[in-house]
Design a protein around this nucleic acid. Structure first.
Lengths: 119, 119
DNA sequence: TCTCTTGTCAACCGTTCGGTTGCAAACAAC
DNA sequence: GTTGTTTGCAACCGAACGGTTGACAAGAGA
């Protein structure tokens, strides 16, 4: 089985599953309730829920023959942590590049005439 | 073609592609450089890069026959915005539920003896 | 020129994915 | 009991995915 990060990203790569997550953020719901708005079979939605459950984004309890679905929002942290790490790394690098360019520009101004101007 | 959000999530659902993004956060690189650490063909990595490019996460320039890859970190915002929205919604709902339960508990304490204690 | 490097494109292969249908289990309600 | 509702499971189908091989284009350099 794939690592959880891969599973969470894969789970959210499908618009129907993102919509399910969006609705579960508002309130818990059963499979049938979740399936109602879409024009696919309940079984298809059940499969989507299994994917979401496998990723840890959704948990399910038991109420007679009903299986209420609940959003587990903590899993979001997994993604945001990964994203933030590399966003910061990229931004840090961008800042360094910026400083480097500023340095070169400053050096150019002292050692040679600017390009594109009267030469 | 799928919406960009789906494409970005799908792109990051693959460990190899996440690793490529991680390395591009440190420095731009060519296809060959990116492919070197993995034991897959250069063609496979080229395909991964096409997926990343399609999602907007990576852009490519031209240097003779080389194609340097550059990380476009702004696309991360798309994801974090989506995630934050529903995380907040879920947390808000959790707070309301918490308040509701606290209210019920307070009411119980004034109207009937606590369960599990001396009856 | 001829050669080597870098990268893409096209075709193919096996697996996974999102959907379907059909069937059965579990349970409520009559 | 029987009936109806909710859900899960297995099999199947077509499309997409991740990988391969092979051929080819574009440049650098002898």
């Amino acid at each position: 089985m794939a690592d959880q990060l891969s599973q969470v990203f894969a789970a959210l790569a499908d618009p129907t599953r993102r919509d399910i997550v969006a609705r579960l953020a508002v309130a818990d719901a059963t499979v049938g309730e979740l399936a109602a708005p879409y024009d696919v079979t309940v079984q298809a939605v059940s499969k989507h829920l299994k994917v979401l459950e496998g990723s840890g984004l959704v948990s399910r309890s038991r109420d007679a023959q009903r299986r209420p679905c609940h959003l587990e929002a903590e899993v979001f942290d997994l993604m945001t942590k990964w994203i933030e790490r590399y966003r910061q790394e990229a931004e840090e690098r961008f800042r360094r590049l910026d400083a480097l360019l500023a340095g070169i520009e400053a050096q150019d101004m002292t050692t040679e005439p600017q390009r594109g101007e009267a030469s």
